[in-house]
Structures are given as structure tokens and as C-alpha cells.
């Protein structure tokens, strides 16, 4: 699903995050050399050729000068629009704070990150971490709190929501880009996390395989994708319709439905609906359940996978120390040191 580079001028008043004259950098630069945002920009490369980029005319330009990517509201944009992820742009800009720990005064996102990656502060402190599919930035915020330097990528305009939470942190770089065509050099990151994202791409395996080469030798990658069971499987027949309904209408539908079912959990129709059209019930409040129900049905792609299948992708990518974590289809692996 490679995107052609955008030839369009910036969509908004450009505001480069740093006044770097050039963003050339060698691959695999040590994290110690990324003290601020201007240096962090150096990790960006031409998604097609891999060459370094230069800052010109409020955007980034390829080495041959033929391709230009705008920087809009401080965020480099390597895709022209939301593409198939438009529903994510809608939901994360509407529910931009619903799952943000610092706003909700909870540790829910931190716990989810720990459970689904097996990572903790000691694993990422002082490291360069890629958050592949950042949404509104719930995990990027935790990683930053843990002391990591974070490059947070999303295909959708959710990056604008993420910018409201982590954009001011000098250790954070937000990028709107496609996981299938990421603007980074091989061997750039110490760790990569991708939680609940890859199953929303056109081909989960293919998009996963794009990530391990971006790890430095010895780097860790941890992902979680939808398991092929329970409500994840029961949602499948609905996706062809729910993903095509206008986001605003479907969100309204989810609000009314979830609210009614939460008020009448034992009503016969609630029980029937829950069996054929399961709604989210995560015990994190009504707003979260509305968001999660919308999130579960609105994306165009909805892959479900088995743990063994996911571990097979890790081995196919040449990763070692591959382990399946206690939460189904949470898998972690490490790139060999040599």
C-alpha cells in the first residue's frame, strides 16, 4: 500500500518543529546524539529511496529534489491524507483524551503497554523507540514518561491529537506516515512497539515485516494484534458495512447503543445484541466503551490472528528470543546482534 509522495504544498501554515537546515544523518545513529527535536528529525528518510532529506520551503525534500513532503502544524506528513484510516482520524481527534493517562488520572494505558509488550521503564529509558500506529498518543505518552525518545507514527490525522499530548516534549517526534512505507533508515530504533494497529492494515503480516529491519542489532520489537477468537471474530461479518458508514453516523449509533446496553445489561435485547454484535465492556467507563466499540467496527481492515501465526512472522523476520506474552497474540522478539 505504498503511497506516492505528496506533491502538494503544505495544507496549513507550516511550522517546522526545529530550524534544522538539513536532516541528513547516518543510519543507526546512537541515541545519545538525539538531544532535541532538530536532531530527532534526522531519523527521517525518503520512504522510497532511503536517502536523507533536507528542510526546504516548510517541508522535507528528497535528495533529488523531486519529492516534497509538507510539515503541517509541526508534523511531517508523508501521506497525502488519512487514506483507509480516516475513521481513526475521526475517532482520535474526537476522543483525544479518553485513553490518555495524564488526563484521566489513571495508569490504564501504562498497564496495557506493560501487559502487551512486556516492556518497562528500564527497557526504554534513554532509548529511541518507534510507536508504530500511535493514535492519540496514549502509549507514546507513557514511553516518554519512562524516559524514552519517541518517534510516533500514524497513517491518520490522529497524529494531530497525539501532538496535543506529547507534541511539546522535545523527546517526541510525530510523523504522519504509512507503516507500509516508513520514512526511516534500517537500523534506526532501539525498540519498536505496535499495539492494536497492524491488524488494521491491508495485510498484517506484510506490514509487520516492514518493522524489524528498522531495529538496531539487539533491538526489541513487541506487537499485539487482534486474536482470532471471541468478539474479535464475531465482529468480522459486520466490517464490510460498519466500515463504510459515515463515521459521524456510526459514532452516534455506538453512543446510543452502548449507553442503552450499559443501562439495561440484563434486558433480553441487550443479551441478543451482545451475542451477535458485541460491544466493548472494558470497565474503564462509558466514554471508553463508546470509543472502543467504534474502534472495533469502523476500520476498513480487521485482521484476526493466532499467537502461533504471529510468532511465525517474528521467526520469518529473523528475530530471536521470540516469546508469546500472557495476553493472547502479544508477541515480542529481538533482532540478532550480528
Amino acid at each position: 500500500m505504498a503511497h506516492s509522495p505528496s506533491p502538494t504544498p503544505p495544507r496549513d501554515a507550516p511550522a517546522p518543529p526545529a530550524p534544522a537546515a538539513s536532516v541528513t544523518a547516518s543510519a543507526g545513529a546512537p541515541t545519545a546524539s538525539i538531544p532535541d527535536r532538530s536532531a530527532l528529525l534526522r531519523v527521517l528518510r525518503d520512504p522510497q529511496g532511503g536517502e536523507s532529506l533536507s528542510l526546504q520551503a516548510g517541508g522535507l525534500t528528497s535528495a533529488d529534489g523531486r519529492r516534497h513532503w509538507p510539515i503541517v502544524r509541526g508534523i511531517p506528513r508523508f501521506v497525502p491524507a488519512d487514506d483507509y484510516a480516516a475513521s481513526f482520524g475521526f475517532e482520535w481527534n474526537l476522543h483525544d483524551t479518553t485513553q490518555i493517562d495524564s488526563v484521566q488520572s489513571t495508569k490504564v494505558s501504562e498497564q496495557v503497554l506493560r501487559d502487551k509488550t512486556g516492556l518497562g521503564p528500564d527497557d526504554v529509558r534513554g532509548r529511541l523507540v518507534l510507536d508504530a500506529g500511535c493514535g492519540a498518543g496514549r502509549f507514546a505518552e507513557v514511553l516518554l514518561d519512562w524516559g524514552a525518545t519517541v518517534v510516533a507514527v500514524d497513517l491518520s490525522s490522529a497524529v494531530d491529537a497525539a501532538a496535543r499530548h506529547v507534541g511539546s516534549n522535545p523527546r517526541a517526534l510525530l510523523v504522519q506516515a504509512d507503516i507500509g512505507s516508513l520514512p526511516f533508515a534500517p537500523g534506526t530504533f532501539d525498540a519498536i512497539v505496535s499495539i492494536g494497529v497492524l491488524h488494521h492494515t491491508p495485510d498484517t503480516r506484510t506490514h509487520f515485516l516492514k518493522l524489524p529491519p528498522l531495529l538496531k542489532p539487539g533491538g526489541t520489537i513487541a506487537i499485539w494484534v487482534y486474536p482470532d477468537e471471541g468478539e474479535y471474530r464475531r465482529r468480522l461479518p459486520w466490517i464490510p458495512v460498519t466500515s463504510r458508514v459515515r463515521s459521524r453516523w456510526f459514532h452516534g449509533f455506538c453512543k446510543v447503543l452502548v449507553t442503552w446496553m450499559r443501562r439495561h445489561p440484563r434486558h433480553p435485547m441487550s443479551a441478543w445484541i451482545q451475542q451477535i454484535f458485541p460491544i466493548s465492556s472494558q470497565s474503564h467507563g462509558l466514554e471508553n466503551d463508546m470509543l472502543d466499540t467504534f474502534d472495533g467496527y469502523s476500520p476498513r481492515y480487521h485482521g484476526v490472528h493466532g499467537a502461533e501465526q504471529v510468532m511465525g512472522w517474528f521467526r520469518e523476520a529473523g528475530l530471536e528470543d521470540v516469546e508469546s506474552l500472557p495476553i493472547a497474540t502479544s508477541v515480542r522478539g529481538r533482532r540478532p546482534r550480528s
Partner: peptide, 23 residues
């Protein structure tokens, strides 16, 4: 974000018949 508006009710009124038909 959690209170039901007329726009939400309209969304429900549009989407529910579509999903019932699909079901």
C-alpha cells in the same frame, strides 16, 4: 462525549436499519 445528542439519535436512526438489513 457521553451525552446523547440529536445528531447521535439521527446516526442511530440511520445506521440501525442498515445493520438490521445486513444481519
Amino acid at each position: 462525549l457521553v451525552s446523547i445528542t440529536n445528531a447521535d439519535r439521527l446516526g442511530f436512526a440511520i445506521v440501525a436499519p442498515i445493520l438490521l438489513g445486513w444481519y
